[in-house]
């Protein structure tokens, strides 16, 4: 049922894990089946000549609690986002993610939405933290995603709490 590329990314996900001091974090949940994705970005000046001195996503990592498709799309979006300007990154949508993976079963398309939402949120987090202007469109997407996230967080409270406790002990 899954394409070869989906399985490849799922079994060996790219950019998995945390970024120590991230510039932005996107934490999203999927109200359809209850999966969770956290995406970390590091922002910096582009090294490439074409985007010289432009601000781009220089590093990106993810953590996902979800199905094969959720893990594969998480991995794929980190690949797609790396080196992109915010404007470019915000254009990555579920079509692009799904196509890059050689397609997803229809019932799994919502998992790819989770990935693009996480990226939107990470960028939003960075812009907000640094008091940078936020477009009306991005603001609207953020509000919508946040509403879904609140529903999920209510459900996962116990585990998230557990995790923070452990982090605190270290």
């Amino acid at each position: 049922m899954y394409s070869e590329d989906v399985i490849k990314h799922f079994r060996n996900p790219h950019n998995m894990g945390k970024i120590k001091k991230p510039d932005g974090i996107g934490k999203v949940g999927n109200i359809i089946c209850g999966d969770v994705m956290w995406l970390y970005i590091k922002v910096g000046k582009s090294a490439s000549r074409r985007k010289k001195d432009e601000e781009v996503i220089i590093d990106v990592k993810f953590e996902t609690f979800g199905c094969t498709a959720a893990i594969a799309t998480s991995s794929m979006i980190t690949d797609l986002a790396k080196g992109k300007t915010f404007e470019e990154a915000l254009k990555i949508n579920k079509q692009e993610i799904t196509e890059s993976l050689g397609g997803l079963p229809p019932i799994k398309v919502h998992c790819s939405v989770l990935a693009s939402d996480a990226l939107v949120e990470a960028i939003y987090d960075y812009l907000a933290k640094n008091k940078r202007p936020i477009s009306k469109e991005l603001e609207e997407r953020h509000v919508h995603i946040k509403r879904e996230k609140e529903i999920i967080e209510e459900r996962y409270k116990e585990w998230v709490g557990k995790q923070e406790e452990v982090v605190g002990e270290k």
């Binding site: 996900p13 969770v36 994705m37 996902t64 609690f65 995790q163 452990v166």
Partner: peptide
């Protein structure tokens, strides 16, 4: 669990 945000 290494991929999951919740695991320790």
């Amino acid at each position: 669990r290494k991929i999951s945000p919740f695991a320790r």
